[in-house]
Design a protein around this nucleic acid. Structure first.
Length: 371
DNA sequence: AAGCCGGGGCA
DNA sequence: TGCCCAGGCTT
């Protein structure tokens, strides 16, 4: 028997016999929800995406509801999930489908993949799960399962590798039920043929698994590029003026695009960052032509956040500004209540959750008591 | 083709 | 600490 036929049969047999993962989007027929779940799940573990999916479905039961929602509100719901451009594309595509296509979701692979935020994987997923079309998904699970079973060491992060695995996936695909097959291979990769400590002992495909035979299961899939991690150092100024706080929206293509942040200074070296003190704050205020007097209440201990491609250190300087409410820079001044409606990076939420706003509130109370 | 985009879980 | 996760976009 052809190896790919063997693979398909054994995989489907496993899928029928084993209790699969129970996930809220499984067996979903509403294409809107299928699309929504797939966008959420991009580079995101199913367990992590779960609660976000539930939130979105509850808040936006239809593509029209999502399309009509303010972008800011959608971002707040997405907060903490990461890769925030997905959120912008989600909203944009919802509007395209609701308003331009009058709510009718594209129903061919070629039209689906044209949607913003939809690439080869997501298009295949929507085409198969939503419309039963014969397109094989290739995600991290599929790269792993196929590379091991067929013993392929072509780098999966190369153009050639992507092409090769997509072709192989199409060969293996069960065209009589593409959705079930796609579901099966991803569940198999997530529960048996795992990245760490794969459960080869209980694998019913191991007798023809090339990597198992050769003892190279842990060497596959092969990647050629190594992840570089950039270190960055920030000093955030949490400034309070009569019960309002200065924030700004992050623009550009840097990390945390379209999220809010506190005005800040980024340092090029750890040394410069650590040397920053009250006089640095004064310099920073002067350079921004802030003429009002201020008091530095405290400087937080540094918080570290590890991202997949950056290691970010940040501390927060708590500043109380005196005098009249005037327009300062391009900052927006928000009350504590308004702040809670804005999407922030996790790093900044860590500051907020550490009781920063309460500290300002307590100080006001103290001042009033004295006067 | 290469670089970049978050946050969480795991060994 | 390094790698991975139901990837895709930009340059």
């Amino acid at each position: 028997m052809d190896r790919s036929n063997y693979f398909r049969q054994k995989l489907l047999l496993w899928h029928h016999s084993v209790n699969k993962r129970q996930l809220p989007w499984k067996g979903e027929k509403d294409v809107y929800r299928i699309w929504l779940s797939e966008i959420i799940l991009q580079q995101t573990r199913a367990e992590q995406g779960w609660k976000y999916y539930e939130r979105f479905v509850n808040q936006y039961p239809t593509v029209q509801k999502l399309a009509k929602a303010p972008l800011e509100e959608v971002y707040k719901l997405w907060e903490g999930l990461g890769y925030y451009n997905r959120c912008r594309n989600l909203h944009s595509t919802a509007q395209f489908i609701a308003f331009e296509l009058k709510g009718k979701f594209p129903d061919t692979f070629e039209t689906i993949i044209e949607l913003k935020g939809v690439g080869p994987y997501t298009a295949a997923a929507i085409a198969s799960f939503g419309f039963g079309l014969p397109h094989a998904v290739v995600d991290g699970n599929v790269f792993r399962v196929l590379s091991r079973f067929f013993g392929i060491d072509t780098p999966i992060d190369s153009t050639e590798g992507k092409k090769q695995f997509q072709q192989l996936a199409n060969v293996c695909l069960d065209t009589s039920d593409p959705a079930a097959y796609n579901q099966a291979i991803m569940d198999f990769g997530a529960t048996v043929c795992k990245p760490d400590l794969p459960d080869c002992r209980n694998c019913n495909l191991k007798t023809k698994c090339v990597a198992f035979e050769k003892g190279v299961v842990n060497e596959l899939p092969f990647k050629e590029k190594k992840n570089k991690i950039r270190k960055r150092w920030f000093r955030f100024y949490i400034m309070e003026l009569k019960g309002t706080f200065a924030v700004q929206k992050r623009t550009g293509k840097d990390v945390w695009g379209n999220l809010y942040e506190f005005p800040n200074e980024e340092y090029k070296t750890e040394k410069e960052w650590k040397l920053a003190n009250t006089s640095s704050t004064e310099t920073w205020f002067k350079s921004r032509k802030i003429k009002q007097s201020f008091t530095v209440l405290s400087t937080s201990k540094p918080i570290k956040q590890q991202l997949s491609h950056q290691l970010i250190y940040g501390n927060a300087v708590l500043v109380q500004i005196k005098g009249k409410q005037t327009i300062l820079q391009d900052w927006e001044w928000k009350t504590a209540t308004q702040l809670k409606q804005l999407p922030f990076p996790k790093l900044l939420n860590d500051f907020l959750n550490a009781g920063v706003l309460e500290l300002f509130a307590a100080r006001h109370t103290t001042v009033k008591q004295k006067t």
